[in-house]
Design a protein around this nucleic acid. Sequence first.
DNA 1: GACGACATGTAGAGACGCTACATGTAGGCG
DNA 2: CGCCTACATGTAGCGTCTCTACATGTCGTC
Lengths: 108, 108
Amino acid sequence: MKADALRGHLDPMILAVVEQEPLHGYAIMEALLERSGGELDLPTGTLYPALRRLERAGYLASEWSTVGGRKRRTYQLTSAGQKMLAAGRGDWETFRTVIEGVLKPRTT
Amino acid sequence: MKADALRGHLDPMILAVVEQEPLHGYAIMEALLERSGGELDLPTGTLYPALRRLERAGYLASEWSTVGGRKRRTYQLTSAGQKMLAAGRGDWETFRTVIEGVLKPRTT
DNA sequence: GACGACATGTAGAGACGCTACATGTAGGCG
DNA sequence: CGCCTACATGTAGCGTCTCTACATGTCGTC
């Protein structure tokens, strides 16, 4: 899967994995890997800046904790983030329809 | 639809519209607009550089002609372009599966 | 003769995912 | 004890691609 393809689709995916329960960065990476069937193996240089961006935008809120001697920054969805996620799911449907409408082979 | 979302997906779409018959740039724009139900209204600053890029990469071949006093550059799919299009369709299926696997709400 | 549709193109900006690097803890194995 | 892997977070800089804005020119019509 080409790297560029992700552009603009990563944000809603991150929001989706923290929808049910707050998770820290590393756990988000693992969740994405697991939910994507091993396809979505994000480098840390992609994920961490994305999380900070989403927090700065008000879609996530974070909190530090220490578990087993390791520091974790745990992110949870804000109410703005919930709205954004819902919007993102809608956008995806539109996007998918557009792409498939164009990509579909025409025998005509 | 956010602009960035298109990244990496535009190329196969362009190849798809010239699959059946060669078209010139302006006609490609109209074809994309029509097939996307009016959603995909590309600015010329996006389409023309993309066409040149695809030609430089060997996926399209172009030829000038004059119709009604207007110069047209008509693009057709090369055999490499056909392979690329097929690969692009496969990539899309993978991509779609990944995104939907992650985005899908979990009631768990 | 002015305007909208047709037709192609370039320059520069902005966004964001990537590579590579930097730092540090915990636990297992030889 | 020393090394390596997994856990955990982060920054700097690069490259790519789409966008906005601008430039140029023809044709038909009002």
